[in-house]
């Protein structure tokens, strides 16, 4: 079987309602295609990297499809505080050796939310409409253990309101009559994001004309302070000026982050990880950075509470 490039939803700013579309929760996890063939189960992520070893639980598919050739599309998710949590799945995705994976299987159990059936036996189902594929999926797969089938909602706006209330990631709208296409070369799947909040530790900053103009953010992940991106918007000029004086008091020579990928063009000043801010962001990127973070507030909580 050749590897399939997963169909990706296109970002849209506003939620819409249309009877041509179905609406689903955007599960905040890791996109994963499952290939079952000859009783062998293999997993490949969005970048077509092999991920079977990371999630031994999904070998369960070999007993569900003993001889069939099946390709499923779905999202691997893990929970934290009753909500799907991307950084939690990343702990599983980053585990490199067997023992670590075994341990994390206990600590971070996963679920697989199946949302498409792309191949069955000799039949390439990608040419069928979403509606037909969905019907075939429901006939073929009975949800069990940690394997679920995604739920559909008829109204985009109602689902989006519920998502906002529950502070979940967003909504995916799929055109019912659309076939499955590679990547983003289509106008059939859309994602509408709800901007969420994350408490972050400030671990460094950059200056422009002697005034701070961006903050380097970190969160604690697996016991280490991980760099998750930089925020440069959300504060007024006067606020930046005030902040600069305060930052200088926390300045240190040592980077507080366990790792700091790449170099910035500007000189970076490191800080003792004591200041905590509330950041609004669109989503987690694949390498676990915050996409388009905006500074919202300063928080009076212990830095150690910025856990993901």
């Amino acid at each position: 079987m050749n590897l399939i490039i997963p169909m990706e939803p296109i970002l849209r700013e506003e939620i819409f309602d249309s009877s041509d579309f179905t609406y689903q929760l955007k599960w905040d996890g890791v996109r994963m295609l499952t290939y079952v063939s000859g009783g062998k189960v293999e997993l490949f992520n969005k970048r077509l990297h092999h991920r079977s070893d990371q999630y031994p639980e999904l070998q369960l598919f070999s007993s569900l499809f003993k001889k069939n050739k099946v390709i499923l599309d779905g999202e691997i998710i893990a929970f934290k505080d009753s909500k799907p949590n991307f950084p939690a799945v990343m702990r599983r995705d980053n585990a490199r050796n067997k023992q670590r994976i075994q341990l994390l299987m206990q600590e971070v159990p996963i679920n697989y939310i199946v949302f498409d059936l792309l191949w069955y036996e000799d039949e390439d189902l990608r040419v069928l409409s979403w509606e037909q594929r969905q019907q075939r999926l429901k006939e073929l797969l009975k949800p069990q253990a940690m394997i679920h089938i995604i739920e559909d909602f008829p109204s985009g706006s109602s689902l989006f309101n519920a998502v906002k209330k529950a502070e979940l990631e967003g909504v995916v709208a799929k055109r019912k009559a659309s076939r499955y296409q590679d990547g983003k070369k289509h106008r059939d799947w859309f994602k509408i994001k709800y901007r969420r909040r994350q408490a972050c530790v400030v671990g460094g900053y950059t200056l422009r004309n002697d005034v701070a103009n961006s903050l380097l953010l970190g969160v604690y992940h697996d016991g280490l302070l991980r760099y998750v991106g930089r925020a440069g918007s959300g504060l007024k000029v006067s606020e930046w000026q005030e902040l600069t004086t305060g930052l200088k008091l926390l300045q240190t020579n040592v980077a507080p982050f366990a790792s700091f990928p790449g170099r910035l063009k500007e000189t970076v000043f490191w800080l003792e990880p004591r200041l905590v801010i509330d950041v609004e962001f669109a989503e987690w990127t694949d390498d676990m950075h915050l996409r388009s973070p905006v500074i919202k507030d300063f928080l009076k909580i212990a830095p150690e509470e910025c856990q993901v």
Partner: peptide, 25 residues
């Protein structure tokens, strides 16, 4: 550590969402 019925959480979340959608409608 917890091998708790994590799978229940998916169901719980979906039920909560549906209830919320229904209420709004």
């Amino acid at each position: 550590a917890p091998t708790v019925a994590e799978t229940g959480k998916v169901v719980d979340l979906m039920e909560a969402l549906q209830a919320s959608v229904k209420l709004a409608e």
